[in-house]
C-alpha cells in the first residue's frame, strides 16, 4: 500500500514538473529562434529600407522595401478599432455592472460570451458580408478597406472591453460603492465620480489587452482589406498593409533570403509589440493605482 502510494506521489510530481518544463522549453526555443533569425535584421533599415526615415515619416517618399507601411497600417487599425470599440464597450460594461439585473443580465451575459467565443475568421467573414451588402447599395466604390477592418476588429474586441469594465466595477469594495450615495450622490454621479475612477486601472488594462488583440489578429484583416503592398492608406476607404498579414504573406510567398529575413524581422517586431503591450498593461495597472491614491 505504502509502496503504491509512493509511486503515485513520484509520478504526479514528475508529471507536473515535466509539463512546466516542456512549456518553458517550447517558449524558450520559439522566442530564441525568432531572436536568432530576426535579431540581426532589426534596425531602422528594416522599417524604412533605403528611404530616409524622416522623409518616410512625413509621407514625402514611399517606402518600398521596409516594414514602415505595414507598421503604420497596424497602428491605424488599432486606433480606428479602439475609437469605435471603447465607448460602446465601456458603456455596455457599465450597464451590465450597474443597471442590468436578473434575467436581462443573464441574457446579455450569454450573448457577450457567444460574442467572445466567435472565431475571428467568422468575424472577418461578417465584415466581408457587410462589404458585399454595401457594395450592392453604393456600387463599385465600396471594396474591402481600412474602415471595414476597423469595424470588424472593434467587434472582435468588444467582449474584452465589456467584461473587463463589468468585472472591474463589480469587484469594487461595497463600502466604497455605498459611500457616495449615502452622502446624497445620484447613481450617475456615483458611477462617474467614484466607481469609474476607482476601477480605471483595470479598465485601462483591459483596453491595452484589447489593443494587443487588434495588433495580432490576422484572420479578420485578411478577409477585410489587408493586402501585401499598398503603401500608407490615404483614406479610410483604401486598402492597407499590416504586420501580421505581411508575416503570413511572406511565409507563403517569399522569393529570396532577404525577403525571408524581413519576414523574421516582422515576426520579431510583432512579438515585441504584443509583449510590450502586455507588460504595459500589467505595470500600468499597478502604477495607476498608486498614482490615483496619492493624487
Amino acid at each position: 500500500m505504502t509502496g503504491q502510494r509512493k509511486i503515485t506521489e513520484i509520478t504526479v510530481t514528475w508529471f507536473c514538473w515535466l509539463s512546466g518544463l516542456l512549456l518553458l522549453a517550447a517558449l524558450v526555443i520559439l522566442v530564441g529562434y525568432l531572436i536568432r533569425r530576426g535579431g540581426p535584421v532589426l534596425g531602422l533599415s528594416l522599417l524604412f529600407g533605403d528611404t530616409p526615415p524622416l522623409d518616410a515619416l512625413l509621407l514625402r517618399k514611399h517606402v518600398f522595401d521596409g516594414l514602415y507601411p505595414a507598421l503604420a497600417g497596424t497602428l491605424l487599425l488599432i486606433i480606428g478599432a479602439m475609437v469605435l470599440a471603447i465607448p460602446l464597450g465601456i458603456a455596455s460594461g457599465i450597464y451590465m455592472a450597474e443597471y442590468a439585473g436578473g434575467r436581462t443580465k443573464a441574457v446579455f451575459s450569454l450573448l457577450f460570451d457567444i460574442l467572445a467565443g466567435i472565431p475571428s475568421i467568422v468575424v472577418g467573414l461578417a465584415g466581408l458580408s457587410i462589404t458585399i451588402f454595401l457594395h450592392r447599395i453604393f456600387g463599385e466604390r465600396i471594396m474591402p478597406c481600412l474602415l471595414i477592418s476597423c469595424l470588424a476588429l472593434a467587434y472582435l474586441v468588444l467582449p474584452y472591453l465589456i467584461r473587463t469594465t463589468q468585472v472591474a466595477l463589480e469587484s469594487i469594495d461595497p463600502v466604497v460603492r455605498r459611500t457616495a450615495p449615502a452622502l446624497g450622490a445620484s447613481r450617475l454621479q456615483n458611477i462617474g465620480r467614484v466607481l469609474l475612477p476607482h476601477s480605471l486601472p483595470a479598465i485601462i488594462g483591459g483596453i491595452i489587452l484589447a489593443t494587443g488583440r487588434c495588433a495580432e489578429d490576422t484572420a479578420v484583416i485578411m478577409l477585410t482589406g489587408a493586402v501585401a503592398s499598398a503603401g500608407i492608406p490615404r483614406s479610410l476607404l483604401d486598402q492597407y498593409e499590416a504586420l501580421p498579414f505581411y508575416i503570413y504573406y511572406i511565409s507563403a510567398q517569399y522569393t529570396s533570403p532577404d525577403e525571408l529575413a524581413t519576414g523574421f524581422g516582422a515576426a520579431l517586431l510583432l512579438l515585441l509589440l504584443c509583449s510590450a503591450l502586455l507588460v504595459l498593461a500589467l505595470v500600468l495597472q499597478r502604477r495607476l493605482t498608486i498614482f490615483l491614491l496619492y493624487r
Binding site: G20, L23, L24, L27, I29, L30, Y33, L34, R37, G212, A215, E216, T218, P244, I247, Y248, S251, G263, F264, A267, L270, L271, C274, S275, L277, L278, L282
Partner: peptide, 23 residues
C-alpha cells in the same frame, strides 16, 4: 510561471505559426 503563461497568451498566432513553419 504565471508570468510566462500570460506572456504566452499574448504571443500572436501568426508568429507561432511562422516560427513553426521553419522549426
Amino acid at each position: 510561471l504565471i508570468g510566462m503563461i500570460r506572456l504566452m497568451a499574448g504571443i500572436p498566432t501568426v508568429v507561432y505559426s511562422f516560427a513553426a513553419l521553419f522549426l
